[in-house]
């Protein structure tokens, strides 16, 4: 193999090493067909830097654990093909997600992210037990359609990392938590929809959103948290004038 061909078949990959203080380390990684960014990171850990810390689980875009910043944009690395992001110069720069505390290298601490889900009351409050019959829910009702539109979130925190307001205001709940709240506000089976709405509209809640739409732009599964947050704003204003949720 000639040197020129060898160089052509390699990617130049800069990877963040360290925590808040650290540096980029550059690796030459073999470029393969249908290679994902997660494949690249895994190759580096297995062949060049065994101490490299990163997080993944399913590798097929379901678990939401492998999100990182790739060439400046937050992405799910297991479903991001190198050919889509590397460009003609075959360069990649991989960093941890923004807006979350760093643990080591590419791994961030998701505790604040999930604490915000709890603050937004992003959890289902049941009204039935296992002995009760299944709740009949019409898939055609407007509320169910609104819930269905946001229900496929995989908790990857890409929207959280992409959101400017999350970066400015540490109190802001962020698009993922508010999107979850919106699905519950529209879930007729939930036993505390008003409580969810009030939690989502409290300080740092839906009214802090600037409607920049970065969450929509970056969501890997194509959700529209901005629309859900706008819905929460609308519902909380209706609630103020007494025509909100029961």
């Amino acid at each position: 193999m000639t040197a020129a061909r060898d160089e052509r078949e390699r990617l130049s990959v800069e990877v963040w090493r360290g925590r808040d203080e650290g540096r980029f380390e550059t690796f030459a990684v073999p470029h393969r067909a249908n290679q994902t960014v997660l494949d690249v990171v895994t190759w580096i850990q297995r062949h060049a830097a065994p101490a490299l810390a990163y997080r993944f689980a399913c590798r097929v875009g379901v678990c939401g654990s492998c999100a990182m910043t790739v060439n400046g944009r937050p992405r799910w690395t297991c479903r991001t093909h190198v050919s889509k992001v590397a460009g003609a110069d075959r360069r990649l720069r991989i960093e941890p997600l923004r807006n979350l505390p760093r643990i080591k290298d590419l791994a961030v601490d998701l505790t604040p992210f999930f604490e915000k889900w709890q603050r937004a009351q992003g959890r289902f409050t049941p009204t039935r037990n296992r002995a009760d019959p299944l709740a009949p829910v019409s898939p055609e009702s407007p509320a169910r359609k609104a819930a269905d539109a946001g229900i496929e979130c995989i908790n990857c925190a890409v929207c959280h990392a992409a959101c400017d307001v999350v970066g400015w205001d540490p109190d802001y709940l962020g698009p993922a938590a508010l999107n979850r709240a919106w699905t519950l506000v529209n879930d007729e089976r939930d036993g505390d929809r008003r409580g969810v709405l009030q939690a989502a509209a409290a300080g740092g809640g839906c009214h802090s959103c600037h409607t920049h739409g970065s969450c929509v732009e970056h969501c890997p599964v194509g959700l529209n948290p901005t629309a859900g947050i706008a819905g929460l704003k609308r519902r909380s204003l209706l609630d103020l004038v007494g025509s909100g949720l029961p």
Binding site: A202, H207, K233, S236, D239
Partner: peptide
């Protein structure tokens, strides 16, 4: 005053 009221105002 609640964030919702401030937003409305």
């Amino acid at each position: 005053m609640s964030p919702a009221r401030l937003y409305l105002l």
